[in-house]
């Protein structure tokens, strides 16, 4: 069992972590925005409904949510989950969109009322105010917390293993079963490299947005 074959094997399964990562971002970034609009709705029943939903999603472990999505359709509705990837994606996107929505909400609510009012008295429409005045300021403010959350997501992808999804730690455990423990520890390097690259990326974005203060 050479170092090179283990590396290649782990790298291949780490692609599954990467896939879960990318698909979660693609789904949760826009879905989070929809949830934000719900939780900021002036229509109170909708607001409470969405807030309760966010509370439930953020208040229970992602691991438990994975189990629920994987097994409840089969047990309760007699419609067994067909693919593990689908189950993983549903659970991850639901979970992360709830977190993202709270970050967005914090960002939007942190923009002073005066910015909206300045746009209003200058005759701008609501959408002009949102897109030309507010949005960019929100993006600047949410980049650091989004960076944190996205780095957490990298590591959370390994939770997919609890419903037997073939990600990197699950792959490494096969070696453990054969009596080799080091590949399991070695997986840490893959996460570190990925997170390192993301840290550099977010640092670069923050610097780009740092041309103004406030």
């Amino acid at each position: 069992m050479s170092f090179a074959t283990v590396t290649l094997d782990l790298l291949e399964s780490f692609l599954q972590n990467g896939l879960v990562f990318i698909l979660t971002l693609l789904g949760a970034i826009p879905l989070g925005l929809v949830i934000t609009f719900g939780s900021m709705s002036k229509f109170k029943p909708l607001q409470y409904l969405v807030k309760t939903y966010v509370w439930i999603i953020r208040g229970t472990p992602l691991m438990l949510q994975l189990f629920v999505v994987m097994y409840v359709p089969g047990l309760v509705f007699d419609m067994p989950m067909q693919s593990r990837l689908t189950a993983v994606m549903i659970a991850f996107i639901i979970n992360y969109s709830a977190y993202f929505s709270e970050i967005y909400r914090g960002g939007i609510e942190s923009i002073p009322k005066g910015q909206y009012e300045a746009g209003q008295v200058l005759g701008m429409t609501k959408s002009q105010i949102f897109f030309k005045v507010v949005l960019f300021q929100v993006i600047k403010r949410i980049v650091p917390p989004m960076g944190n959350e996205i780095i957490t997501l990298v590591k959370d992808t390994s939770l997919a293993r609890v419903i037997a999804y073939a990600e990197i730690i699950k792959a490494a455990e096969r070696y453990t079963a054969m009596g080799y423990i080091w590949p399991l520890f070695y997986t840490g390097v893959f996460f570190l490299v990925f997170v390192g690259a993301l840290t550099l990326l977010f640092g670069w974005i923050e610097r780009k947005l740092d041309y103004y203060k406030g």
């Binding site: 002073p112 005066g114 910015q115 009012e117 300045a118 008295v121 005045v133 960019f136 300021q137 600047k140 103004y212 203060k213 406030g214």
Partner: peptide, 11 residues
């Protein structure tokens, strides 16, 4: 309207 707190667009 000119506001007390200016409300310029920082970006």
């Amino acid at each position: 309207l000119v506001f007390q707190s200016f409300n310029l667009f920082p970006q």
